[in-house]
Design a protein around this nucleic acid. Sequence first.
DNA 1: AACTAAATGTCGGCTAATTTACACTTCAGC
DNA 2: GCTGAAGTGTAAATTAGCCGACATTTAGTT
Lengths: 225, 225
Amino acid sequence: MYEDLKYWYLRDHKLFRVLSYSQIKQLCIITGFKTATKGEIIYFSSSDVPRIFLLKKGNIKIVAVDEDGNETIKDIIQKGDLFGELTLETDDKVEEYAKVLSDDVSICSFLMSDFEDLLLKNPTLAISYTKFVGLKMKRIKNSYANLISKDAKTRLSQFLKDWAENEGVREGNSVRIENYLTQNDIAQIICTSRQTATQLLNELEDNQVLIYNRKEILIQDITQL
Amino acid sequence: MYEDLKYWYLRDHKLFRVLSYSQIKQLCIITGFKTATKGEIIYFSSSDVPRIFLLKKGNIKIVAVDEDGNETIKDIIQKGDLFGELTLETDDKVEEYAKVLSDDVSICSFLMSDFEDLLLKNPTLAISYTKFVGLKMKRIKNSYANLISKDAKTRLSQFLKDWAENEGVREGNSVRIENYLTQNDIAQIICTSRQTATQLLNELEDNQVLIYNRKEILIQDITQL
DNA sequence: AACTAAATGTCGGCTAATTTACACTTCAGC
DNA sequence: GCTGAAGTGTAAATTAGCCGACATTTAGTT
């Protein structure tokens, strides 16, 4: 049954484990459900009623566009991650969109206001949620700190390490990562130009640290990075 | 009375306005209270029981030290701000300390665990708190975005504008800021070298945009920044 | 198979900003 | 008033990495 499906989707996230069936159902009442394919762009700022999204399958990137038209990759969202108005506050200043990176994604969403109601009734959930937002904040802080104090090479290495840790399949000291990013994407994430990213990746390949292609990245020895 | 004093201190923060006298008292039971003078260093990571701090008076900077011994200014905390383990999670990996910038400060603190208990009993407070943490996150995101995409000159201007807005005394288009930062501090905040910061500040002074000295910064015309 | 758009590879010039190095100024503490 | 430490001013050498310009490769579409 459709409603049940959505229940299980939410139930899967560790935040919602503490909730009962009926509590999740409450969120689900007006819940949206959506699938999309590679390259598709999903707007979720300003336009609509504020929502919180849960990515059930695939990968997407959150891109911010500033007044000059420069695009920055704000975040890479992976299967199981929440995204959207996580801070429970809408700000319409920021122009953001999400672009699908993997072949296809499925996203489920609920209204921020419903979620807020639920938090009011579930203090435990509220605390978990605060910690969750805090953790997200800490991650962002760390990655930014990296961006600022290190040079491009170190940033790339750090990014690859993080990526490998999050998603890589480890075999001894080598790690295989499914590569759904272009070199341009990587460049944007580590805040450098495409050319520099290409150069550094090739350098790593020359030094036999990794093997790069469009489908996957094979890190020979993760300790060497 | 001492207890009452602390009550009013907390009561002052907009987060705690929703609380009753007895609720705040709960926090205050084991609350610490502390004063310090310029240059003093306050450690608040790992060492002690996790706490949340409220700066009642003065200014402090939060400095993080990485493995190479590099110091980065994480945050400037002003009168009325909360700081410490805002995410309700302790992580001992990060080495952080707070240094007093103004002549003297007074800080009050309470235990994270007490605060957590309070949040459990006050879902409304929990939501406010989540929003508060979220806002903090958004600010950090913005300032980092600035650091990354703009050059040093723009970053300095932006920093001065923010500073002026937060603390400056406006008289027409000119703003007077009490300067409790050294040029080195400013350099660290905008992530550049001390020399570059000095150069840029002097440049601004040459162009009659501002007048700088150790005590105060007088921005002639804030719209020119 | 042919065509096209996107992705990747490569190069040299250019510039902002770090680094190194040193002189001068301010100020608190003796 | 003297002294040392911290803060500020300035300048030249060096460099990381951006940018423009182009060639080549890959993958999807007709």
